[in-house]
Design a protein around this nucleic acid. Structure first.
Lengths: 251, 251
DNA sequence: TCAAAAGTGTTTCACTTACACCCATGA
DNA sequence: TCATGGGTGTAAGTGAAACACTTTTGA
């Protein structure tokens, strides 16, 4: 009954509640940035050795939201910039014992993601799509969301669904800002949209759309680099990343 | 540990999983139709006497979807035309004992709703907003969604959230058809939208929009009545009521 | 001075909105 | 015949898409 590294570990035959999280972040390397997510390697029996979503058992004295934050922090050390409940998965055969998983999905700012895990994996890359586990935090690693290996339980389907929700939500909310640091250029923001949606966007039209949306605050600073300097913007925190209706009062 | 009439009944101090459903239907009386939903009166201690959402405990051998259908049928005898998971509610203090509620929301066709419950309540109306319980199905009754009494647990918030989701989804999906019988006129369909959205829609523009959406199949039949007969349509079942992404393969 | 990204202007097109108008029926 | 909802036509408005164009920097 002790909290496990990932959600589903059998005990007795009562149905138990686990909480897991799909955390997306953006890795900027090579040409275009790619969506990545942290996984945890299972160290006990159901699906031992396979990678799984970070999570753990719901504690009796905490809310679902709190459990998502806690288990995410315990297993990966990460603190997301956006966290939202995704879905409750409860197929009978999804685990040897009966487990209902309340799954959250989250976004991590690019600066927060690079510190904890990615930096420590540089010295032992042993696969095309994955980096070696970061030793300090047990068996964790970042994976390309577009080419995952076979995961434990029904976690492949869960990630697919989370990706679908992310792509949907990017179309009608300002959620993409959750993947960027405080200051960013319009090209940065556009790259986020492009890598999530999987298609190029017209820079001119993109600029007008976000400028008219009222979510950006221009700063006086510029990013100087190869060509004409680009103005840096910051996110207008008065605007919610996503409209959540009556649920936004909780939290 | 026997299934209860509504979801949250205490037993011991382990966290348990309940499944409840917010079922919307449309009552066509007076001038404009109103959204109604069935509630169940609690017959035991936490919140005894108050009305609550129909639901019950998750059985160890059934999926969440199946549990929603089963408990809905057991408590109200209703079979919805649309069923979708709404949210998992798990605040620590939402019930005396620890209960995580997986809440679904559903739509009921107007013809299905009128048979079971409404007809039997005509003889004993004792409140402005509610009808007396239908005797054959214990303590159940239909309520106007816009003016609910105080409900058990956090069920008022849950209904608010379900209403928000319904209104949202009506804007970008064909879900409103789930409230109508097989054949309907464009005025019928427009009334559904109007009563959910709470505003009038231009009949001419509404007609063009749904005609161009490809979701309607015109029949040769007409509804004759007061004025010019209106063509009857039926729903094109090749089109999903709502896009659900990777989740639509389950079920 | 040249390549390339930053940023502006303009046209086109699709779709919504508003509303005038005709059609068909029961009373 | 007339009131009323069913159904069609059409012009204005809005915003996205496409793309030509100017600006500003590093090399």
């Amino acid at each position: 009954m002790t909290p496990a590294q990932t959600a589903e570990d059998a005990a007795d035959d009562v149905t138990r509640v686990a909480v897991s999280t799909v955390i997306f972040s953006l890795r900027r390397e090579s040409d275009s940035p790619t969506l990545v997510l942290p996984l945890v390697r299972r160290t006990r029996d159901p699906y031992e050795g396979l990678w799984a979503l970070p999570g753990g058992w719901l504690d009796g004295a905490e809310s679902l939201d709190a459990a998502a934050s806690r288990t995410l922090s315990e297993t990966t050390g990460l603190a997301p910039s956006y966290l939202e409940q995704l879905y409750a998965f409860g197929a009978v055969d999804r685990s040897p014992s009966r487990v209902v998983s309340i799954v959250y999905w989250a976004l991590l700012r690019a600066d927060a993601a690079s510190t904890e895990l990615i930096d420590r994996t540089k010295d032992a890359p042993d696969s095309a799509t994955r980096n070696a586990p970061a030793s300090a935090l047990e068996n964790t690693g970042w994976f390309d969301a577009a080419s995952l290996p076979r995961l434990a339980f029904d976690h492949n389907e869960i990630v697919d669904y989370a990706l679908w929700r992310l792509r949907n939500k990017v179309g009608y909310s300002r959620i993409a800002h959750g993947l960027l640091a405080d200051e960013f250029t319009l090209a940065d923001l556009r790259e986020v949209y492009e890598s999530i949606l999987g298609r190029r966007l017209d820079p001119a039209n993109f600029r007008r759309q976000v400028e008219n949306s009222g979510t950006l605050i221009p700063t006086d600073r510029f990013r100087t680099g190869s060509h004409r300097p680009a103005r840096l913007y910051r996110y207008n925190r008065d605007v919610e990343l996503a409209e959540r209706g009556p649920l936004s009062v909780r939290h």
